[in-house]
Write a protein that binds this DNA or RNA. Structure first.
Lengths: 235, 235
DNA sequence: TGTTTTCTAAATCATAAGGTTTAGATAAGT
DNA sequence: ACTTATCTAAACCTTATGATTTAGAAAACA
């Protein structure tokens, strides 16, 4: 939670020096904020973040030198508690999705009223997420589109369904990179039996070596015993 | 977009018959909705959806027979334009995340004012997403937590960084399940050279067969040439 | 009862894959 | 000039893997 007794330390990164000045003035008007630094360079910005460890970073996502997504990634790697509010001229759903995925806590369009930026900073500093309604709709559409693709490839008429229980167990072990001898030991059956199962698996999956069997399994939503039990406990 | 000249066809699924009656009355009060069916069984519900193809399904996510997530999945597989509004007593972030991932368009807590349900149906039927502010915050937290885990495992100090350019190319082909002979052909080098590279890869990745090399690559964020070019064009 | 499926297992064979060493040619860096 | 890294390649050997056939036992099914 935010400590209201202290001023929030804010760092600004925008390659456009004019915008930078404008934003700084806007934020400085609010007595509860303290702009600890401004820079037009993403790389310098990252160093400033390391040095000053601000509470909030307001950053343009569209910069030439290092794009905002890369900068976000770099900031994430610092492992600080700094929250980032993205400032952007774009409203592309993929960009929003990727920014949120990389840990951005707020997203403000440059076309929006400037007071909205203060709103966003306020929200984000209190640990909440700030996304204008338009953008959150876009975000969800994109999120669901991505999820749908994953589902589709997992549900695709797949050869995996033709495997027997035992073959599933064997394939599971194959996807862990285990060899015949160890599989036999784990399942307490002979090595030749394992070979028989594996060959049957190959035929059913229409491949002719382990690597391709494993690749098929992984790209067609094969549920390993580990992930199965995970689902069981989660539900 | 919604056609205002027609009544919206709504189907209700809730294992609690009392809730079901309550919701039906609430919705029927609105003259623009037409409740085409109600059922306490998820399985029957799915059949009703197939038969009546409603515009909106309002479904409880917490049902004994078939849980709401499974039902959502089944509805998704029907490939209809039906939009689902989830009704729930829970506010668990993982549940919201998974429901949204499976294509739910709205999420209403049972504790919320009943008029909110009408709001949600209205929003969703117009193609938007409905998530109360509390839940969208939870959703984003969960979303970012999941994304962070992915990032973490991809950024983990990994052995992949020690590979040379050529070794990367070879590993890329290995992850496509290609054998020595074909790799040699693709790279226009001899098979023995490929073997040399592969052996060097094994040592660097600390594995001793292709399957484990491929598994290591896939689970440690190895970028294939395909995904690399994708990133290039996307940025 | 007869049929099919699944799991088990062995035998045999061919070859792909893995391990190790040695070495020449370049290119890059000190 | 010297060293190091990288890419290339061959020879040699061992073993793991894959392909195919045959077959017994148990369970499921018609």
């Amino acid at each position: 939670m935010r400590d209201f007794s202290k001023k929030l330390r804010v760092l600004l990164i925008d390659d456009n020096a004019n915008h930078l000045r404008g934003i700084k003035e806007l934020i400085t008007l609010e007595s509860s904020y303290n702009v600890v630094g401004t820079t037009t360079s993403a790389n310098i910005g990252i160093n400033l973040i390391k040095r000053y460890q601000p509470d909030i970073v307001v950053m343009d996502i569209n910069m030439p030198e290092k794009d905002g997504l890369q900068a976000l990634k770099a900031i994430g790697k610092l492992g600080l508690e700094t929250n980032v509010v993205i400032l952007s001229g774009y409203d592309d759903s993929d960009l929003i999705y990727r920014a949120m995925k990389l840990g951005a806590k707020g997203y403000v369009l440059k076309t929006m009223a400037s007071m909205k930026l203060i709103d966003a900073i306020e929200q984000v500093s209190e640990g909440r997420i700030y996304l204008p309604a338009v953008l959150s709709t876009r975000f969800f559409e994109h999120f669901q589109a991505v999820a749908q693709k994953e589902e589709a490839s997992a549900n695709e008429e797949n050869l995996l369904s033709s495997l027997t229980m035992r073959e599933n167990e064997v394939l599971d072990l194959l996807t862990q990179g285990i060899n015949y001898k160890s599989i036999a030991a784990k399942l307490v059956i002979s090595e030749t039996t394992v070979k028989t199962h594996v060959n049957n698996i190959f035929q059913k999956l229409q491949v002719n070596d382990r690597t391709n069997a494993v690749l098929y399994a992984l790209t067609h939503g094969f549920k390993t015993s580990a992930s199965k039990s995970q689902v069981m406990t989660a539900v």
